[in-house]
Amino acid sequence: TFVEFNGKKVEYPTPEAAEKAAKKLAKKLNLKVTKKNGNYKLE
């Protein structure tokens, strides 16, 4: 499962880990999380 932000793509071993990381990053970077095709994107 990938988390995409600032043009970077980071892969996580589980969807749970990706979701957790996405939410944490979104909060830190003041972005919102969108889920697309099972992957997460911060914008």
Score class of each variant (00 low, 15 high):
1 T>S: 12
2 F>M: 08
2 F>A: 05
2 F>I: 11
2 F>N: 04
2 F>T: 11
3 V>M: 04
3 V>Y: 03
3 V>Q: 00
4 E>A: 05
4 E>V: 08
5 F>I: 07
6 N>P: 03
7 G>D: 07
7 G>K: 06
7 G>M: 05
7 G>C: 08
7 G>W: 04
8 K>W: 15
8 K>N: 12
9 K>N: 09
9 K>S: 11
9 K>C: 08
10 V>R: 13
11 E>D: 06
12 Y>W: 05
12 Y>L: 02
12 Y>C: 04
13 P>W: 06
13 P>N: 09
13 P>S: 11
13 P>A: 12
14 T>W: 03
16 E>H: 10
16 E>R: 09
16 E>Y: 10
16 E>S: 08
18 A>V: 00
18 A>C: 04
18 A>W: 01
18 A>Y: 00
19 E>N: 07
19 E>C: 08
20 K>W: 11
20 K>G: 07
20 K>I: 12
20 K>F: 12
21 A>C: 08
21 A>W: 07
21 A>D: 04
21 A>Q: 05
22 A>C: 01
22 A>G: 02
22 A>S: 04
23 K>D: 08
23 K>W: 14
23 K>Y: 15
23 K>R: 14
23 K>F: 15
24 K>L: 14
24 K>P: 00
25 L>E: 03
25 L>A: 05
25 L>S: 01
25 L>N: 02
25 L>G: 01
26 A>N: 02
26 A>H: 02
26 A>P: 00
27 K>L: 13
28 K>V: 10
29 L>G: 04
29 L>D: 03
29 L>S: 03
30 N>S: 07
30 N>G: 15
30 N>Q: 10
30 N>R: 09
30 N>V: 04
31 L>K: 03
31 L>Q: 04
31 L>Y: 04
31 L>M: 13
31 L>P: 00
31 L>G: 02
32 K>G: 05
32 K>S: 09
32 K>V: 14
32 K>N: 08
33 V>W: 07
33 V>H: 01
33 V>M: 09
35 K>W: 13
35 K>G: 05
35 K>V: 15
36 K>T: 14
36 K>F: 15
36 K>R: 11
37 N>K: 06
37 N>C: 06
38 G>E: 06
38 G>V: 02
38 G>S: 05
38 G>Q: 05
39 N>M: 12
39 N>I: 14
39 N>S: 12
40 Y>H: 03
40 Y>T: 02
40 Y>G: 02
40 Y>C: 03
41 K>C: 11
42 L>K: 02
42 L>P: 02
43 E>Y: 13
43 E>I: 13
